[in-house]
Amino acid sequence: MDFFRSIGITEIVFQFMLVNSILGLSIYLTLYTGMFSLANAGFMAIGAYTGVILTQNFDLPLGVALIGGMILGGIIAIPIGFPVLRLKDIYLAIATIGFGEVVRILILNFDTLAESITGQEVKLTRGALGITGIPKITETWQLIVFLVVVAYFMIRLHRSRFGRAMAAIRQDEQAAANMGINVVYVKNTVFIMSAVLAAAAGVLKAHLTRTISPGDFGFDQAVSILAFAVLGGTSTWIGPIIGGFVLTALPEILRDFKQYRGIVNGSILLLVIVYLPGGLVNPAGWSRLWKRLRQSPEAGENHART
């Protein structure tokens, strides 16, 4: 423990590492099914605000808030998924970024909007300043238990008929449909699962950070979530967990670099993406890199001779 603390990983950093790996897993589900969705930050916002309103305005325990946030995230995903998941690749990405912005702006203006409708003063989302003074009630063990449950869920998913259908859709959607897979159903279900997981991470994270504001859940957050999964690798469920851990811990470990921290952090990410395109958890990528490093002096000689 002292070692981790000495390199900058305190308990709160560890807690964020756990939350971010859950976020990485939420986008992993959609990526694994071949859907390039960036809606997760939006669902995270829905979870965070729902959770905080339930614990602060209604004095409910965190467990209830967690379930409430997950349910609301899932319900909102249903009408979003049906029209949006007809799109593919970059078009789906743009549409889901749009969804994230709509969520952010709705939360930003929620109180004003509600006031104009009800005619009474409403103080729920509290506009651009956000909600402050949230007690830090998420415990490390709760996060670990949640992550373990999600990991078990992932393992069983991959061994199931549904999980095989997900992988088939990623590789060839039309061929998957010709195998008797209901592509629309699988895609929408995965989108809902992903939303539920992102919302859960939102609830848990909101009770770590003490404050939340709409700006926390914008495009930056959507890209960070994508980075957890891409850096860790999306060939197995372990990848996004490692990605979430590394990307959260790295800035803390690099504190000694002071003002150059951003540069070092960025360079490490760049190196991983260039030399390990399949992500950190990808044995084939490591062996390819290893071969390349060992062969490079000889290759250089050959090149010089010709």
């Binding site: 069983r156 998913l157 061994r159 199931s160 008929r161 549904f162 999980g163 095989r164 259908a165 088939a168 998957a176 195998m179 008797g180 897979i181």
Partner: peptide
Amino acid sequence: IGQHGRGQATFLDS
């Protein structure tokens, strides 16, 4: 995967 349509088990069964 070819046998997907013949299966009945849901993800919860797994």
